[in-house]
Amino acid sequence: MQKVTISLEDDILRFVDRQAKGNRSAYINDLLAEHRRRILEAQMITALQQDAKDPEYQAAISAWDSVAGDGINASE
């Protein structure tokens, strides 16, 4: 963890204090972690949607799918 200094508007700080229940850092960390998770999830969904529309990618996946069940066992 690193300690940082930030500036908040008075009404935002009052809100944080009401929600944080005594631990501003944990509350802000939790908020930012959830925000980051949502952004990453949206980025992943966008990437998967783009892959689904990409005929070259779909052809490559199809080629790999045809060899995935070829009976070769990598652990042996």
Rank of each mutant, 00 (worst) to 15 (best):
Y57G: 00
L8E: 09
R18N: 09
D54P: 03
E9F: 00
E56G: 08
Q43W: 08
A60V: 02
I61S: 00
N29Y: 13
L8V: 15
Y57Q: 12
R38T: 01
D30M: 05
Q2F: 02
A33K: 07
Q58H: 03
Q49D: 12
I45Y: 13
A63D: 01
Q43N: 08
N29C: 05
D65V: 06
E41G: 07
Q49W: 02
S25E: 01
A33P: 09
E76M: 10
F15S: 03
A52Q: 09
A42F: 15
D30H: 06
M44N: 12
Q58K: 12
S75M: 14
A26D: 10
Q50E: 14
S66Y: 01
L13R: 04
E76Y: 14
A68P: 07
D70I: 05
D51C: 07
S66D: 11
P55T: 10
Y57M: 00
D11R: 02
L32D: 11
K21E: 06
M1W: 00
E56S: 08
R14V: 10
N73M: 03
A42N: 15
D30W: 11
S75D: 10
Q19R: 12
A60F: 12
N29V: 06
E9M: 00
D51V: 03
Q58F: 01
E56R: 10
D17N: 13
R18I: 05
A68W: 00
E76P: 02
D65K: 01
F15G: 04
Q50H: 04
S75I: 04
E34Q: 14
Q49V: 03
V67Y: 02
S7P: 07
G71T: 02
I6G: 15
F15D: 13
L48K: 13
A59P: 01
R38E: 07
L13C: 06
Q43M: 01
Q43P: 05
E9T: 04
A68S: 12
S7A: 10
A74H: 07
L32R: 02
I6S: 06
A74W: 00
A74I: 12
K53R: 15
